[in-house]
């Protein structure tokens, strides 16, 4: 009802134009440059075509970057380890986030909003600062080690920072709100009468949980897991700041290809593969969003 035909067209054109220009087109360039070679020029990659006297005489594009990507164990390992870290961290986040969301959904209505705000508030404060806060806590001379030392639990500082443990911790910490929100949205809609009916029919609480609550909250679990997993796989800041030299994640590799090695074509190829890897989960998430009422 809003608007006549031309109003509609302008409003429609705006997002189309923007996404075409700043979403689709950039990926076209990534794809294109992933087929070129690194060069000592500005910009640092070879041309797509070979020129002679102003005319295109041949195609210089090649698959060298992709061949290297598949043959070099470093890259393959980086992808696999990213997916592994992302998946494990997502699972831990779910284990922590589910009971939190459940408790909020079962809290008195006036307290629910307070809890929700408390869960969301860290998301509004700087991501970088939150990761930085853990650096301070996990250092050998940080608060955790000092506390444990002075309590006599340990004799020498534990190595916490720059370990895989710190990376998992960082991801769980940073993405916890993204897990709690969709779970809460789902659990809040759950009619408490269903659990009462289950109890009335003789189900013990944990039976009712497994048989009623858990299956009904599956869409929330799926959404929360995807919202954590997808960005976590490509995470750069957390492995860079909390991980050690042995923490292999594709975001870090991509970053160093781009900034340290200045190999833009290789970084582009890595991006293309990462994108291909994430297309399925992104579409799964999108499908869920579309049929949400």
């Amino acid at each position: 009802m809003i608007g006549t035909a031309w109003h509609r067209r302008i409003v429609l054109a705006l997002p189309w134009l923007w996404t075409g220009l700043f979403f689709l087109l950039p990926f076209a360039f990534v794809l294109k440059i992933s087929f070129s070679e690194a060069a000592l020029s500005v910009p640092p990659y070879s041309d797509f075509f070979a020129y002679a006297g102003g005319a295109i005489v041949g195609l210089k594009a090649n698959l060298a970057n992709y061949q290297l990507l598949l043959s070099d164990a470093l890259y393959v390992k980086a992808y696999l380890s990213s997916v592994k870290i992302g998946a494990i961290a997502t699972f831990i986040t779910l284990l922590l986030g589910y009971p939190m969301a459940y408790a909020i959904a079962r809290a008195a209505p006036q307290r629910r909003n307070v809890f929700l705000v408390l869960v969301m508030l860290p998301f509004w404060t700087s991501f970088l600062i939150r990761i930085y806060a853990w650096m301070g806590l996990l250092r050998p001379t940080g608060l955790i080690n000092s506390a444990l030392l002075s309590l006599g639990v340990i004799d020498e500082p534990l190595l916490l920072l720059n370990t895989p443990f710190a990376v998992y911790l960082g991801i769980v910490y940073a993405y916890l709100p993204f897990m709690v929100l969709p779970l809460y949205a789902r659990l809040e809609k759950l009619d408490p009468a269903l659990l009462e009916a289950a109890a009335d029919l003789g189900a013990k609480p944990w039976r009712a949980f497994l048989g009623v609550t858990l299956p009904l909250s599956r869409p929330g679990i799926l959404a929360g897991c995807l919202l954590v997993f997808i960005p976590a796989v490509g995470e750069f800041v957390i492995p860079e700041l909390l991980g050690g030299p042995n923490t292999l994640m594709i975001g870090k590799v991509l970053w160093s290809e781009f900034f340290s090695n200045r190999d833009w074509p290789m970084a582009s190829a890595l991006t293309v593969v990462l994108l291909v890897l994430l297309v399925a989960p992104i579409m799964l998430l999108q499908a869920r969003r579309e049929d949400a009422p």
Binding site: F22, F29, I230, G234, E235, F236, F258, T271, L275, L278
Partner: peptide
């Protein structure tokens, strides 16, 4: 949800 590195590199190339 898209990892920032993807958005960053693609926009830079554009």
């Amino acid at each position: 949800v898209l990892p920032d590195v993807i958005a960053g590199i693609s926009l830079l190339l554009l």
